[in-house]
Simulated scan of single mutants.
Amino acid sequence: MYFLSRRWKPNKWPFYILVGLESPLTVALLALFGIASPNLYRTKLWQDGADNGFNSSPSTGLYAAANYRPYTTPKVWSQFITDYNVVISVLSMFILLVKSVMYILHVFPPVLSVLVHALLIALYTVSVDYQSSSDTTDPKHPQRGPPWYITKSCSVTKNKSLVGYCEQAKASFAATCAMLGVFIIYFGFALWSCFPSKQQRAEYAETRRLKAEKWTKFESVEDPTTGEHTGYPMPDTPGVQGSLNPMTPRTQAFNTLGGTKDLPLRNHFSAPRLPNSPTFTMTSPEQQRSPLSLGFIDRVGSDVQAGKSPEIGHSPVPAAPHMYFPPPPKTSKK
């Protein structure tokens, strides 16, 4: 019984639609995160939010170090999230190209899709969490939710030259959330396709039945009277006659020339007297001669005098001398 399906359902079009949604988002994230790397506007937006009183100041870490106080950069303003976003965008582009080709070649089953998109969901969940994290390092200006460029309009900036950077940061967060949603749909669609439907179960059962019947024909013998398959077929092993006497080329040659069905040496060791070796005649046809060969004219004339019709290329076969095979030795070593 198959517990996991290897085919997508209901058809291939949902996967192509999801790929069509993922492709522009991947390109957009790759461009936005690449532009923001390594630190194009992160510190500037951080400082502008501090000027407006929305969050802490980038100089908070310097005051903490001067006063020997522990300080940790907020996750939303850290260098880690900028580099992390670039890495996952490049990885997403690679996975998109590979899985599209594998799906076209029918080597991207739903089970593998579940694993791949579960990994992508975890990666993008971390990215969304870092981009929307809070900043409470400054007790006077705590930020207890997402940063100001997400929750507020970009027009509130004190430095109007940062409006474009604010919009880019806002678009990056929106595209990251949209990509996470696409991957969740991927995951749900693949997980649903892992469980076969009734029609797929019937097709699997029929395929297994046909495969079993094919191997049964090779493993059993059909009774001609009843039509049932019983036992295993005996292989036609050359050289075995009656499953008793092994027939080798030497034995077959002795039997053919001597006219016996047993080995010649068996009578020697079982009978008190030696058997006479059988004699036989070996003949070979004479090669055809051409009219230009010596003796051809004389032979044709003799055939005409004897009343025979001459046949060009044929000559009478002379009797071959008898060949004698000596008997086996009288004594033998066991």
Rank of each mutant, 00 (worst) to 15 (best):
Y2W: 10
L4T: 13
R6A: 10
W8T: 04
K9P: 00
N11H: 09
N11M: 02
P14W: 06
Y16L: 13
L21T: 05
A28F: 07
A28M: 11
A31C: 14
G34N: 15
S37E: 14
Y41V: 11
D48R: 08
A50K: 00
D51S: 12
S56G: 06
P58F: 01
Y63K: 11
T72R: 15
D83S: 15
N85S: 15
V87L: 14
I88V: 15
V90L: 12
V101D: 01
M102N: 04
Y103E: 06
I104P: 00
L105W: 07
V114P: 04
V116S: 08
H117Q: 07
H117V: 02
A118N: 08
L120A: 08
S127N: 11
S133V: 06
S134Q: 13
P139G: 04
K152M: 10
K160S: 13
S161L: 11
L162F: 05
V163E: 14
C177H: 15
I185P: 00
G188D: 10
P196D: 06
Q199W: 09
Q199V: 13
E203N: 07
E203R: 01
A205D: 10
E206Q: 15
E213G: 05
K217D: 07
D223C: 11
H229A: 11
G231V: 09
P235E: 15
D236Y: 03
P238G: 02
G242V: 00
N245C: 08
Q252P: 00
F254R: 04
G258L: 14
L265W: 09
R266C: 11
N267I: 02
H268W: 08
R273E: 09
R273I: 06
L274P: 05
T279W: 05
F280S: 12
T283N: 15
S284I: 02
E286P: 15
E286K: 15
Q288W: 11
G295C: 02
I297N: 09
V300C: 06
S302L: 12
S302A: 14
V304T: 12
S309D: 12
I312G: 12
I312Q: 15
P316Q: 11
A319Q: 15
T331C: 00
